[in-house]
Design a protein around this nucleic acid. Sequence first.
DNA 1: GGTTTGAAACTTTTT
DNA 2: GTTTCAAACC
Length: 745
Amino acid sequence: MSIYDSLNEQQQKGVFTTEGPVLILAGAGSGKTRVLTHRAVYLIEELGVNPYNIMAITFTNKAAGEMKERIENMVGYGSESIWVTTFHSTCVRILRRYIDRLGYGTNFTIYDADDQKSLMKDICKRLGIDTKIHKERMFLSVISSAKDELIDPVEFETRAAGDYNKRRQAEVYKEYQRVLRQNNALDFDDLIFKTVELFKQDKEVLNSYQERFKYIMVDEYQDTNTAQFELIRLLAMKYKNLCVVGDDDQSIYKFRGANIYNILNFEKHFPEATVIKLEQNYRSTQNILDAANGVIANNVGRKDKVLWTDNGEGDKICFEQLESGYEEADYVTRDILRKVRNGGYNYKDCAILYRTNAQSRLFEERFIVSNIPYKIFGGVNFYSRKEIKDLLAYLKTIDNGQDDLAVKRIINVPKRGIGAASINKVINYAMEQDISFYHALRMAGEIPGLGKAAEKIRSFVLFIQSMRARIDSGYSLSRLMQEILETTGYLAELEAEGTDEAEERIQNIDELISKITAYEEEEEQPTLSGFLEEVALVADIDEFDETNDYVALMTLHSAKGLEFPNVYLAGMEDGLFPSYMSISSDDSLTELEEERRLAYVGITRAKEHLTITAARSRMIRGDMHFNRVSRFVMEIPKHLIGGEIYEPKAAERPIQDTPFQKAKKAFRTAAASYIPVTNQREFESANTQKNSLEYQVGDRVRHIKFGDGEVMAIVAGGRDYEVTVDFDKTGTRKMFASFAKLKKI
DNA sequence: GGTTTGAAACTTTTT
DNA sequence: GTTTCAAACC
């Protein structure tokens, strides 16, 4: 009995076909990670391949970490030298070693989206481009797609030919790259682009990596873009032992440059390729799979696959159309409470998936009131918070004064009395002398017209220099951070503020310090650059953690690769999902197919139970929208659905109502009670206080989350009371007595 | 140089 | 409904 006996025939074929190119088409939940890990183990244990010669590439750190752990558990000794990482960290590792051959310093910094935006703003200003008409974002996305397609500024200019708009974009692109190089910085796309450039330019480097990575595996292959494909192609060219695993039906990153033809045409690129299909699903029930199959079958030009399972039919899929987004959130909240109380589920078994991050708010509000533990993924990344970025900018400046952006960010944070006027003088001086911003700061004494600001700049420079000296004399990173917080007065300023917001910022800073400490503990040779690098490449979903008991809220995009026993697909409305952008696009056929794949990803996240919800009306950016049920719901075979679809003549209804209908409906919605009692028995079980309240208007009460406050109003509605409380800290809130569990004090 | 206020934009998805 | 940005004011 070997470990490979537990695999099915197709999976075994994927594991044992080690030589030559292999394409594994792996449907959702078909055990592709198992195949990849077993394949690595097979190579090491049965074929005697040195782990050092194996590379596995994934898209997220989380996926990489999991794979690495699973391999380590099976192989034990020696597996740590196997290279399991993301595309981006692979490239950083290579570039840190060799990028000097392209004229960059090996201590380059990595710019995130924020950095890119402020850089672009500078450039537009300098080139006299009105950002009211031509958005920075537009230029950035043009440049990003160019890099994904491996088009450099020169080539871009050639292709622009006589097109005035494109010529301007070419000019911006060129300038953007110039400044990046001057700052010794790379953006995310550069990481891939420059590695490919390095490989093409330097055969010696390419050859050394080809020799090293004799066996290459790529996960989520359907999401690779042209540049990533080229990177892999170059590496695999010599030994051709390339195994890619993916599912064309789960390709959802076209907007980010993913090229679906990388997977659809794999056999054209590698004619000798072995193709293996994994269609047996180990995750979901047959009903869920049939629903997913029914939806995805509407796409054309896909590799034909039909998922099946041994797991049995399972529950029907629930569908509920609610009056509003509020009711939708309420419905889901109650359903979760019910399933946790008597359905044998934990909070962590439940996930709410939605199309846009903005949808999380309503659920969050409901969860706070109902005391349901939850965690929202996506949205504002931890490392994008202001205080964190400020402190990282200090670290970057200490690490590498070449990064003008970081220096400019903190030169007057906290306030040192160095204002915009003085900073502009320094910027001009730096440009004239062709030196970095920080270099110019060091020469502040020689810059004309600075006046008393020069002295302030001097003490800032002295501070940075002294911090550098500390690093050189062996200070730990966490101690350095503490020192920065104290000496600059950053922490003191926040403490003095005393607001809730400041309190939250301080907590985030504490969290940053513990992340620094954790880094120092796990790394053998912790360095400042090393920490900054690790931080630059983390995604929010990497923080996903199965051990805590909370409901997970995330976008459909973030949910890829995850699974939950009980899944809610919320906001299934035409115009929201599929998004209005995709419906009205010039290329709506293609874009709708991508949205449909997203729906397929969402449905297949569910293991046991799937609930689909939609709202008749929804506030979007302050406007009321009336959407019909998502076309994707209509594509699910009717007999699989337990709820009722309330949309008899969907095809006849306009997506947007006329102003008159709109007004009428808005009135009707407003007139309806805020949260109707849909299921009386269930409601009563949630209602712990029945008809009597221990407090009345004017009483002081205590809420478990919001603290103390005064009761302003109590309104009876149905069996419950709607209580308005003016909290000392958070202001006035309305809540239902049965959920809020207010205590009189 | 710093603070306050009001308008305007934003929302599709992110390594 | 929220956040960001600029202009006006102190």
